[in-house]
């Protein structure tokens, strides 16, 4: 199994290297978004005399820099990938292989993350120099933070992989993906730290896994959570992980049946 992963990693990194220019360009997209919201919230904090919802311009900067990094390491593009796979008929080739396709998807994702490491930290440093973030660093929190990021990544991967398989049932699943991304934009904490969202939106968020993907690890590292909140968050991550793992098994099984009933 390990040798399969190594082979997958080798090819996916080789492929991505061919598209380094495109990848850089996509990267700009992912750096611009946090900057926009950082700028807006900095302006809000200034208009309120330097502080809003417990955040100052400095802690906003810290929040968005960490958020950008966590987003970079936990995001997947698998929902778009499946949309394309089903429409272009390349799924058949995947199904003929004597190995579950999730493995090559995992390898692709890891390969991308490895490559992007060389870009994301300079980008973070760059924003850091411009916006003067205020950090307080605790070694013990950092270890918990790493754990939370890993949990977030695995949980997110299984959730999005399972949802990507909606493509088996409808060939136009952009609509579905759009709703997911829109919810994610608000509920993961990208548009604003969750504490700044109106109550009704936070209640929606409590029923969904989004806040455990980004907001939780970020606020954990910034020392904004109590011990109880950290324990609760890690538990929720594990629960969602177990749930999404089961979900991906069921959806895959049913999806393949559906696909092989209607043909490619």
């Amino acid at each position: 199994m390990l040798s399969i992963y190594l082979a997958y990693l080798k090819t996916s990194i080789a492929v991505m290297f061919q598209y380094r220019a495109s990848m850089l360009i996509w990267m700009i997209w992912r750096v611009i978004e946090p900057i926009i919201y950082l700028v807006v919230w900095t302006a809000v904090a200034k208009s309120r005399g330097g502080e809003v919802g417990g955040y100052t311009p400095g802690t906003f900067a810290a929040y968005y820099i960490v958020l950008m990094i966590v987003q970079q390491y936990t995001f997947t593009w698998i929902m778009h990938e499946y949309e394309w796979r089903v429409r272009s008929g390349t799924l058949s080739a995947v199904l003929l292989k004597p190995i579950h396709p999730i493995h090559s998807d995992i390898a692709d994702n890891i390969g991308y993350k490895v490559l992007m490491t060389v870009i994301i930290f300079p980008a973070a440093l760059f924003i850091g120099l411009l916006f003067a973030p205020v950090f307080t660093f605790h070694a013990d929190l950092f270890i918990l933070f790493l754990l939370a990021v890993v949990l977030s990544y695995v949980m997110r991967f299984f959730i999005e992989w399972a949802l990507a398989l909606v493509a088996f049932w409808t060939t136009r699943n952009e609509a579905f993906n759009q709703v997911y991304f829109l919810l994610g934009l608000f509920l993961t904490g990208r548009i604003a730290p969750l504490g700044l969202l109106p109550d009704w939106l936070r209640e929606v968020g409590d029923a969904l896994p989004f806040q455990w993907m980004l907001a939780f690890p970020v606020e954990l590292l910034l020392g904004r959570l109590t011990n109880g909140e950290i324990a609760h968050g890690l538990t929720m991550q594990v629960l969602w992980l177990v749930f999404s793992f089961g979900l991906h098994r069921i959806v895959w099984w049913r999806g393949v049946r559906k696909y092989s009933a209607v043909g490619a």
Binding site: I4, K10, T11, A14, V15, Q18, A93, K97
Partner: peptide, 19 residues
């Protein structure tokens, strides 16, 4: 079906070998 578009053929073969 078998080959990865952007990389040398031998790398795709190597990938299949592992799979």
């Amino acid at each position: 079906n078998q080959l990865v578009w952007d990389i040398p053929v031998i790398d795709s073969l190597e990938r299949n070998r592992a799979v």
